[in-house]
Design a protein around this nucleic acid. Structure first.
Lengths: 211, 211
DNA sequence: AGCTAAGCTGACCCTGCGGTCAACTTGTGC
DNA sequence: GCACAAGTTGACCGCAGGGTCAGCTTAGCT
């Protein structure tokens, strides 16, 4: 790869990271290129597609952040504190870094590495949830799909709130967590989703929101 | 107004009602006109804007549905059942009639009558919430702004789920309600939003989602 | 039947999106 | 310093959205 191409790739990565972080993964390809000071054609040359760029710029970062949150949760002696801390932390990430919210909610099914991160994260969430359920602190009927549903619902407004300088989205997380403690549980009105169902739902949901 | 204009207005109203109901308020003006079998120019002639059409087609219907739900809630002898039934019913409306979700979440700030419906609905929710809080069944720190935040978060995914034939969104409502009973309450990590804040948030939020 | 204004149409304006590619520029090895 | 491949560019494609308006059609009165 020639030196100028290298330079442009770096510029694009930097610009994309910046824009993804503040505006989410849906920023337009041309805008990223503009921000990087190169033609959008160059972006296609170097990365092939927006998904390619996303995979390069976001995947490792997202995996690290989400992995760290999961690690902390499982390292916590109290399973409930581990679980609730995990939920809070992931919500915090969603609120302060829109790109991470987009990863978790599968808004870009064509970004294969991001989808893998999402899968890993789902598996980690299952462990965290299982542990807290076995402990008897988390209600028995709560599933990882429920968590994903909550996170996906919550992300957009939390993002807006955080962008407006408000921490009010934390209240919603608080209400939710209070409803997830085992003693608070009352029978649920519907069967749990399978992982397939929730994944379809998220992907369909982003398509509907976009179109 | 000439007879043909009358006829076209009716056609447009019918087509808009249909499309709004199944696809939400964001359907394009041209698509409504196509569906009605008239030129989109005619739509502008007769209604001035999409907002004008929305106000004519949706406002009364939304007011009736939401008003009825509120009436039932306040008529219920048990304030908690009134409140929880209200939340469930509004969520049901959001899931099955995307247009109503869009009304409540202020996605179209320029539709003045819709915004009025939204304001009335907020006031009704305050009554329902107040009653349940005074009763001691609903946690004391829950506000109408919190409800609106929840409804707005919940609407998009509930819509997708319902469209896919799933009732799984009801689970999320169940978790939330379990967290709202007074005995489940633990201190919240943030101050409540003012009505102004939540309104700004919703409007900003839809703008962000659209752009 | 004829006239006129009310109403309708769709071509046209703009924007912005993703994406492609011929023509140009420039880095780099010789 | 030169040749050529590697890389860059921005005009261009198609699409879809909101919105406007000159010019045509037709309802409806006389």
């Amino acid at each position: 790869m020639r030196a100028d191409a290298q330079r442009n790739a770096t510029r694009l990565r930097v610009a994309a990271a910046e824009l993804f972080r503040v505006r989410g993964l849906q920023v337009s390809v041309k805008e990223i290129a503009r921000h990087a000071g190169v033609s959008h054609g160059t972006l296609y040359n170097l990365f092939g597609s927006r998904e390619g760029l996303m995979d390069e710029v976001i995947a490792d970062l997202a995996a690290a952040r989400l992995g760290e949150a999961a690690r902390k949760a499982l390292a916590c002696a109290d399973p409930w504190r581990g679980f609730s801390g995990y939920v809070s932390e992931v919500c915090e990430l969603q609120a302060t870094d829109p790109a991470l919210g987009d990863v978790l909610t599968r808004r870009f099914p064509d970004a294969s590495r991001l989808m893998a991160v999402c899968d890993n994260s789902f598996a980690a969430a299952e462990s965290i949830i299982d542990r807290a359920r076995r402990d008897g602190s988390l209600r028995a009927d709560f599933t990882a799909a429920d968590l994903l549903f909550f996170l996906a619902s919550h992300a957009p407004l939390a993002r807006s709130a955080a962008a407006a300088g408000s921490g009010s989205w934390r209240r919603a997380v608080g209400f939710m967590l209070d409803g997830l403690r085992a003693p608070a549980a009352t029978p649920l009105p519907a069967d749990p989703m399978t992982p397939q169902e929730i994944n379809h739902l998220l992907i369909e949901g982003s398509a509907a929101a976009a179109g």
